[in-house]
Amino acid sequence: MNDLEILIAGVVALMGVGLYGLLFTRNLIKVVVALQILVKGVLVAMTAAGEASGQLNLSQTLIMTVIVADTIVAVVGLAFAVQVKRLFGTLDLQALSNLRG
């Protein structure tokens, strides 16, 4: 395996874990964590893309920005989680399914 293939394997693994978490976890905190893992997988993909195309500078800038934006999303997500715990008394997603139909 060369470097690129290792990176791609990493992408697949991380995104797989992230999506698995999003599809099967019922705990809101874990969902936020799964989102983070998903995005981290994408960041690895971006590194690989920079590597493959010889545009590491560009991909670095990109990655830095994504990390900042993604952190904001995580913060907002966690803030929502705190509020959910306060209002619903649980972090179970089952409780968050009142809007249907």
Partner: peptide, 14 residues
């Protein structure tokens, strides 16, 4: 948005 970023990575790599 993560899927979009993955798409961007693919485009950049290619």
């Amino acid at each position: 948005s993560a899927l979009v970023l993955l798409g961007i990575s693919l485009v950049l790599g290619q």
